[in-house]
Simulated scan of single mutants.
Amino acid sequence: MEERLQKYMAQCGVASRRKCEEIILEGKVKVNGVVVKELGTKIDPEKDTVEFNDKIIKIEEKKVYIMLNKPEGYITSAKDEKGRKTVLDIVNIDERIYPIGRLDYDSSGLLLLTNDGSIYNNIIHPRVAIKKKYIAECRGKFTESDLKKFKSGIDIGGYVTAEAEIDVISEEKSFNSRKNSNEIISTVEISIHEGKNRQIRKMCASLNHEVISLKRVSIGNIKLGYLKKGQWRNLTSEELNYIKSL
């Protein structure tokens, strides 16, 4: 039975279907020894040979679904051209996996990884609008006006964010050595369903609240819980069923 090349590549664990489309357009894929650059290409997995970077790829027999508590200082990617550490340096397993979505280099928290391209869009696709919850430590006190702006949408440079949720958890005084004075550090819980690059940091910055630390604690019903930084585990059957039901 024939299927689209990018779908087959995703099932083989190369990358998400969208990323596989980019790889095809870059001329990195061969079908039966011939470079293919057309996204409409269909293949028969039982008859055709597919190569990525001159290596034959096949569907992974074992599907892997992993939750990682990503530490700061790691790139959410399979490789980094600058030689920085990636999340795959932490989750070192035999299967070729890739992250679902991303977390900034300076951020920590819940990240999902898999070799099952079929579930990628269940979390990433805009139609799903799955809620992602973060805990942020920010400089300054959030006023009622700040909270209203945050909830109704903020211009973060050519893009106005959708409605978001924000709740102040605590406010504490802290000594700022750069300014040689005390300041308020606010801890806030933020929920968004978009995934623009550095979105929360930009939203807070637009209100003059620099983000000191940012941690993602849940994606929909999947919660980070007590998993420590740098640790990972397989998703439970309940968590996996939830993702597949989206």
Rank of each mutant, 00 (worst) to 15 (best):
E163H: 10
I90Q: 11
I192C: 02
K173M: 09
D167F: 03
P45H: 10
Y120A: 15
E137V: 01
R18E: 05
E72A: 12
Y8R: 05
G13L: 13
V34G: 00
K82D: 13
L246Y: 11
R233Y: 06
D106E: 13
E51H: 06
I156G: 03
L147V: 14
M203P: 00
Y105Q: 13
K42P: 02
I66K: 08
I243T: 05
S177V: 14
D167Q: 13
W232C: 13
S174T: 03
V217P: 06
T143D: 10
Q199V: 04
G83A: 11
E51Y: 03
I93H: 11
S77Q: 12
T143C: 08
G158R: 03
A205I: 01
E21Y: 08
S118V: 14
K85C: 12
D167V: 12
V87H: 09
N221E: 14
K132P: 00
V91L: 14
K148L: 11
N234K: 12
N176D: 15
K244Y: 15
C12V: 13
D155P: 00
S16Q: 10
N69H: 14
K133D: 01
I200H: 04
I56H: 08
I24T: 08
I200D: 04
M67L: 11
I169C: 07
G158E: 07
G101R: 02
E26H: 07
N180L: 06
C12K: 15
I23N: 03
Y242D: 13
D146G: 00
L207R: 04
G158Y: 01
E72D: 05
D155F: 00
N221Y: 03
K229R: 10
G13A: 06
R198I: 03
C20K: 03
F150P: 01
I90G: 11
